[in-house]
């Protein structure tokens, strides 16, 4: 181990890699939330229950596909770069959020919903003011799973030219520079753990009083 290499990896290489990695994670998760939460709400409505089961099964299958395979399959179809990587990651980050949105909304006790409709609330207001707030902790927990996943598979996205912390790790493995490995891998691990803790904290903060953590 040489301090010089370590310094170079940490101060010259890491900032750009970290920036690219954050970009991948933020874009993917934002898109995933924008797609999955409405999809989850839609599928949890009683009318579309059958459809929901099919969708969940398809997403379940997609989820079983290993991350490295998804990345490898994305290359011939979508090409090289950050955009294909984001699309590939997006596919797999949908399931946890859709599943938890459905679970959260269906978990709202029917007594509460009846009380709300007894108070004269419309379906729309019940969804926005009763069901969603009560389901938010569970939805957030799905977002947390998806985020950790995207950070993790994001390191593999460097294989198809998306950049990110994977570049440092792959470079470190190719040249066998432990300093590169430690910086790239360490930052990746810290990023995942940090985001996990942060969303976990949000989950606890946002849980409506009276619901309490289980």
């Amino acid at each position: 181990m040489k301090w010089e290499n370590f310094r170079f990896a940490l101060f010259e290489k890491a900032p750009e890699a970290l920036w690219e990695h954050s970009l991948i994670v933020v874009i993917t998760i934002t898109l995933a939330i924008l797609i999955s939460v409405p999809l989850g709400i839609f599928l949890s409505r009683p009318k579309f229950k059958k459809f929901g089961l099919v969708t969940l099964n398809i997403l379940n299958l997609l989820q079983a596909v290993p991350g490295i395979a998804v990345i490898a399959l994305a290359l011939p179809i979508l090409g090289l770069g950050m955009k294909p990587a984001i699309v590939a990651l997006l596919f797999q980050s949908l399931l946890p959020i859709v599943r938890n949105t459905i679970a959260g909304l269906l978990g709202v006790s029917s007594d509460v919903k009846e009380a709300a409709s007894g108070m004269g609330m419309s379906q729309r207001r019940i969804l926005l003011e009763v069901e969603l707030p009560l389901a938010v902790p569970i939805i957030l927990s799905g977002i947390r799973t998806a985020t950790v996943y995207v950070v993790s598979i994001g390191t593999l996205a460097s294989l198809i030219g998306a950049g990110g912390l994977g570049n440092l790790i792959m470079g470190g493995l190719a040249l066998f520079r432990p300093e590169y490995l430690l910086v790239g891998a360490g930052l990746g691990a810290l990023m995942a753990i940090f985001l996990d803790r942060m969303i976990n904290y949000l989950e606890h903060r946002i849980t409506p009083p009276g619901m309490g953590a289980e």
Partner: peptide
């Protein structure tokens, strides 16, 4: 939980060192 968060490539890379 914390261990589970670590990206798999990172985990391998750290163990290799």
């Amino acid at each position: 939980n914390t261990i589970f968060c670590i990206p798999s490539l990172s985990m391998f890379a750290i163990l290799v060192t």
